[in-house]
């Protein structure tokens, strides 16, 4: 057996050199995974901040809503600015209420349905905004390892072809190529693991927020329904 130096002086094994020595397919996979990782983290940061804000706004709104303040006043205060979460549901419901009474809608019977619909719509819109881009995290979480594995398989393939060409089975010949190829899997896992964790956490957070908003919508719907009945009784 011929003796080959274990680590030839020319072979650099730092991450940068591993990347640079890889084939173009492996490079492409690595670059793609790197961008995916960047985007994943961008989404994670964005969502965490957004959910934090949403929770605090929900808290503030609930505080204001149950403070005994008149609904008319609250509506007036909120209607002229951008709203999020519960306040947008509240505004949507109040707008529908106002429209129905100010424009002299004759039948109060359909009003309840219309208000519920308006609130559902607002809720859906809010949830869509909250849960948007979480799908990307799920995709990266499940597909990232596979993409990395693809890069590894291609890298090892080319590595073995090189071994076959060099007609040497020395580990020193095999090792750099395999290390290169494995870097792709490492990057894939690096992107996928936070994505999976963040997806699970964020989707459960979004679910909690949705439950809170649905609860508020039901409650507000009940309040409005009681008011409608009172008005119908006054008229009747």
């Amino acid at each position: 057996m011929e003796s080959t130096a274990l680590a030839e002086p020319g072979v650099q094994l730092s991450i940068w050199h591993l990347f640079w020595q890889a084939g173009w397919v492996v490079k492409l996979v690595m670059i793609g995974l790197l961008f995916a990782s960047v985007w994943t983290w961008a989404i994670i940061v964005d969502k965490v901040v957004a959910y934090q804000r949403m929770r605090s706004s929900l808290n503030r709104f609930e505080q204001v809503f149950w403070s005994g303040q008149s609904l008319e006043e609250l509506y007036r205060g909120l209607s002229d600015r951008a709203t999020t979460g519960m306040s947008s549901i509240f505004v949507a419901a109040m707008r529908e209420w106002k429209k129905s009474f100010e424009k002299g809608a004759k039948s109060p019977l359909g009003l309840q349905t219309r208000i519920d619909k308006a609130m559902d719509l607002a809720l859906t819109r809010e949830m869509e905004r909250l849960e948007g881009r979480l799908g990307f995290l799920a995709t990266i979480g499940s597909a990232g390892p596979f993409i990395g594995l693809f890069g590894t398989v291609v890298g090892i393939m080319t590595s073995f072809q090189a071994i076959a060409g060099s007609k040497s089975t020395s580990l020193a010949v095999v090792a750099p190529g395999i290390a290169e190829a494995l870097l792709a899997t490492a990057i894939g896992l690096l992107a996928a693991i936070p994505a999976v964790i963040a997806y699970n956490k964020l989707s459960s957070d979004a679910g909690k927020i949705a439950v809170r908003m649905e609860g508020f919508a039901d409650e507000f719907s009940a309040i409005l329904s009681r008011q409608i009945d009172e008005k119908v009784a006054q008229k009747g």
Partner: peptide, 22 residues
């Protein structure tokens, strides 16, 4: 979020290049 992420990655890569070299 994007800015934070890019900065974070750049920092990680920089640390990686220094720490996890050969």
């Amino acid at each position: 979020g994007l800015t934070t992420s890019v900065v974070l990655h750049a920092a990680l890569l920089g640390i990686g290049l220094v720490t996890f070299s050969a």
